[in-house]
Simulated assay, not measured.
Amino acid sequence: MSDNSALQDPFREIRPYRDSEVSEVLNGLLYNDEFIRAIARYQFPRLAGVCGFLVRPLVRMGLARAVGDVETIRDFQQLVAKYMSKMIARTTTRLSCSGLEQLDPDEAYLFVSNHRDIAMDPAFVNWMLYKADMNTVRIAIGDNLLRKPYVSDLMRLNKSFIVNRSAKGREMMTALNQLSAYIDHSIAEGESIWIAQREGRAKDGNDRTDPAILKMFYMAQRKKRSFSEAIERLNIVPVSIAYEFDPCDRAKAKELYARASAGSYEKAQYEDINSIVAGITGQKGHVHVAFGAPIRGQFESPEELSAFIDREIIGHYHLHPSNLIAAGEGDEVTAEQRAAFEARMEGLSDGEREIMRQMYANPVINKRRLEAEAV
């Protein structure tokens, strides 16, 4: 990229695609053999291997028909919405929401969310906004999930932007400054952002905001305004997403037990991709998305703001029967609900079962502690 084009489009390497780029990107995906093979394996797992040479052309033609009328990012997201609707019907027993009435459809917000599922957390936030006729968000996604070019293309078509986690040293500071500037730029031009409150999922059920994320928000503004002024400008809204059942709970319990018992855990090559697929296709029970009020007031430091966001996310977290059972507060739950929760732990070792139970109990423990502090 030339210096001149970099000045004209300083976020080109990380930003979502634009409407003018959609047709070219989709055409590239249709002729990406690795992408077509991946779709064929997902849709026709038994046939894709032996009869792959027959299945792949059919998959390519089917995709070409599906995206034939897609010319803009909005068109693409409306196509995604059709699949999202089917996924919700198949994998949730109920989907509920609270707090949207506190938001202005004409405003842009920086949604800082707890993080339990790689793909579904921002997807459920987007769904709630979409159903309320509000603009969907631009989604922060780590480059560790984008090792495949076709995955990066799909995410950027769905308004995702890239967080460069692999950068080191001076490159990291440059990447963080660029990310900070892009978030500020997005809010200023009326585009909302979704970002997790910390790097990586809260696999143990403890939702905690990393002050380093909040420091990054301020980096691009530090020469122009105070920390408190910058936070006011960004229009931060805490979001708390609660799954009755986490489709990746067993995998998380096994990983955490391996780290506790062996001191380390080695990820498989495609583990993140498998987690994304499991999160999309797995049973979730009741899912609740709680939007907090836009944050106002004086905050002198990232640590002070971090503590406030934690209180908001924990306070708005919807406790499901699975959480109450795990925390020993299941007096009001049914025998059926208790059996469903216990069934999820079948086949796990005692250590893994205890970690999984704690994972579901921690939101209750944290909420009760918050309630006690407020008395």
Rank of each mutant, 00 (worst) to 15 (best):
Y83M: 12
Q102W: 08
Q337F: 07
N164I: 14
A251Q: 14
A230E: 00
N274P: 06
K86S: 07
D246I: 09
G200N: 07
D153E: 13
D184R: 14
F124A: 02
E24H: 09
M172A: 15
I313Y: 01
P10Y: 08
H286A: 13
V237N: 12
Q102T: 10
Q283V: 06
H288V: 07
A212K: 09
R41T: 03
V289Y: 07
E371S: 09
L54S: 02
K284V: 07
I88C: 07
E336L: 06
I236V: 07
E34Q: 11
G68Y: 03
A64P: 01
R368L: 14
I73Y: 05
V80A: 11
P238C: 05
K159F: 05
R74W: 09
I187K: 07
N235I: 01
T209C: 11
L305N: 00
Y130S: 01
T93L: 02
M134N: 05
P211T: 05
D133Y: 03
E232P: 00
E24Q: 14
E101A: 11
S152W: 00
N177R: 03
A327P: 08
T72E: 03
F217R: 03
N206K: 14
E232M: 02
Y243K: 14
P321R: 02
D104T: 00
L145T: 05
Q8W: 04
H316N: 15
